[in-house]
Structure formats: C-alpha cells, structure tokens
Design a protein around this nucleic acid. Structure first.
Length: 218
DNA sequence: GACCAGGCACATC
DNA sequence: GATGTGCATGGT
C-alpha cells in the first residue's frame, strides 16, 4: 500500500473504532491556547484542575490573565505540574497577545499560518507541538500536530524508518493527506486515543484496530 | 514506591 | 546534530 493509502487507511480504522473525538476540549479558543501550554508533558486530568481554578477566579481571558501576578498564577496552575515554568510560559504568550495584538486573539489568528507559527515559536516556552496545537485547535487552521504518540505509532507501522525530526514527521502527513482542518483535528486526537487505549507500553498493538497493519518483523 | 503523562530550554560533547 | 537534565503534580 502507498504511504498515502496507508495514512488514510489508518485514519479510517481509527475513526471507525473510536468515532469522533470532539477535540480540543475547551470552551473558547483562549482556553484551548492556555490548555496547550498546561498540558506539556502532563496528564490532561491534571490540566483540567488548573483550568478550573483559572475559570473559578474569572481569569480565563487575555486581559485578566495578563494582569494577574506571576506568583498567584503559578499557585493557581499548581495541579498541572511544572507550575513555575508554565506560569512564566503563559505570561510570555500573553505578552504576545496583549502587547502585539491588544488582547485580540482573532487579530493574531487572522495572520497566515507560516507567520502565526513563526510568532508562536518565538515565544519562550512554545515549541513546535504547542504552537501547532494552538494553530489547529484554537485558530482552526490546517496544520498537523505531531506528538510522542505520533512517533510511536508511525514507527510501529513502518511509516518512518529510524529516527526522524518533528518537522520531517509532520511533512509526511501534510504531503500525503488532504489539507483539511477537521481531518487533522480528528486524526491527531484519534492517535492519542489509540495509544491511551491500546499501545502504551506493549511492544505489539494486541487487538488494536491497526493490528493487521503491522509490518512484517525481521 | 516506581512509572508515566497530549514538551521545552539549556548545557555539553 | 545527538544526548542528558531540570522542571512537578496526581493517577495507576
């Protein structure tokens, strides 16, 4: 099967097995953006506690969150872990939104994708996965989000041979799939769902929807 | 108690 | 360019 065919086959299997995932969980684009930073190397259940703290305090908007002290912010997001460094990262991101775009997320998100990605990556604490999550799930523009699970699945199914960079893996998806925000949104969410359900530490995807797509072992 | 989770920056070689 | 380390909580 061609790489393009295999990528769509994997998507269709996952969609059939799990259905739509309704990602990203979050009431507003701003909340999605905050969640993208908070979830760095962190279980989503812990992120939800931090988000709920911010909402309870009425801080889930660029102006309010920009005005709160670093110390108070770090205490509120404590359940999400790495709370000191993440508070700093959120502040860095808010500086971009508030100073560069007067707190208007729509203005920031109306930039073309390469420019938006460049600006986000310029924020200290925003790397490729966080930037792309914001672009896809908050700005709703078609980029493919790569994460540790994506590497795991693509390696297992022989779509990459040996080590490959974030950008290289992303290119494989972008070149072989139709550029479609809804497709990319579901695809990434389904990969996460697959790994959480079946492929966490097992060497084989036993009984998983992709089991018979495994490449031959040597 | 060990291990893991929807990364990133920075130091060092 | 590759590899190692700090950052930290809460669930299994």
């Amino acid at each position: 099967m061609s790489r393009e065919g295999l990528l769509m086959e994997i998507f269709e299997r996952l969609f059939k097995a799990f259905g739509p995932q309704h990602w990203w969980p979050g009431d507003t684009p701003f909340e999605v953006m905050v969640g993208a930073v908070l979830t760095q190397n962190t279980n989503w259940a812990n992120v939800e506690k931090a988000i709920s703290n911010l909402k309870r305090e009425g801080l889930m908007d660029p102006g309010s969150l920009g005005a709160v002290s670093l110390e108070r912010l770090s205490q509120l997001i404590r359940p999400a872990g790495y709370y000191n460094i993440k508070a700093r990262r959120l502040k860095n991101l808010l500086d971009l939104v508030n100073n560069g775009f007067s707190g208007d997320l729509n203005a920031l998100f109306s930039l073309d994708t390469p420019r938006l990605r460049e600006l986000l990556l310029g924020v200290k604490g925003i790397g490729p996965e966080t930037a792309d999550s914001i672009i896809l799930y908050a700005a709703r523009k078609p980029v493919f989000v790569v994460d540790a699970y994506t590497f795991r699945v693509m390696e297992r199914h022989g779509l990459v041979s040996g080590p490959c960079s974030y950008d290289e893996l992303q290119e494989i998806f972008l070149r072989n799939l139709k550029e479609d925000t809804d497709l990319f949104s579901e695809y990434h969410a389904l990969i996460v769902r697959l790994c959480k359900t079946y492929c966490l530490r097992s060497p084989k995807c036993q009984k998983c929807p992709l089991e018979d797509l495994l490449p031959q072992r040597r």
